[in-house]
């Protein structure tokens, strides 16, 4: 049960973008410098985030990325689903022997719910506020 590099670095990069974007776009090279993530890797991650509608790319010399909507409206569930795909702890594949089907329903789905609840109830804005509170 592991979160991939894409999920870990992607979340970090998106939080950095949200922290530093004050209505203006943020360049990937700035994020790369602050977070010590490779520019190449950030480019591929932001292609995903853009395709998922979480960020908007701005071309040009002063270009970079912006959040596609207010941080209040972006939940961590949306972000991690965009980066990781389905977050379930197991593969959902049709018919299962009775014990497996029972445990999927009563154990693994319960764990999935606890994960999605925590992520659904935290917005990017909540996270920024916590980081701000910690810093002061």
């Amino acid at each position: 049960m592991k979160i991939s590099t894409k999920g870990r670095y992607g979340l970090r990069a998106l939080i950095d973008l949200a922290l530093h974007s004050r209505g203006t776009c943020v360049s990937l090279s700035d994020i790369s410098a602050r977070q010590e993530l490779s520019l190449n890797y950030l480019e591929s991650i932001f292609a995903y985030l853009k395709k998922s509608g979480l960020v908007i790319g701005v071309a040009g010399a002063q270009g970079g990325y912006l959040l596609a909507k207010p941080a209040e409206q972006i939940t961590l569930l949306e972000v991690l689903t965009a980066l990781e795909g389905d977050l379930s702890v197991y593969d959902h594949i049709g018919a299962e022997p009775p014990i497996r089907a029972f445990l999927n329903r009563n154990v693994w789905d319960a764990i999935d719910r606890s994960i999605t609840d925590v992520l659904k109830n935290t917005s990017l804005a909540d996270l920024l506020e916590e980081l701000h509170t910690d810093a002061t």
Binding site: R8, I15, I111, S114, V118, T122
Partner: peptide
């Protein structure tokens, strides 16, 4: 080497949620 990791708190929270649920489910109850 970034001193203040801005995402670790998310992983702590997800880990706590998993552990809380998984540690409360006993073989007896199941």
């Amino acid at each position: 080497r970034v001193r203040h990791c801005i995402s670790r708190r998310v992983w702590v929270r997800v880990s706590d949620a998993i552990a809380e649920t998984a540690n409360a489910l006993t073989l007896k109850a199941i």
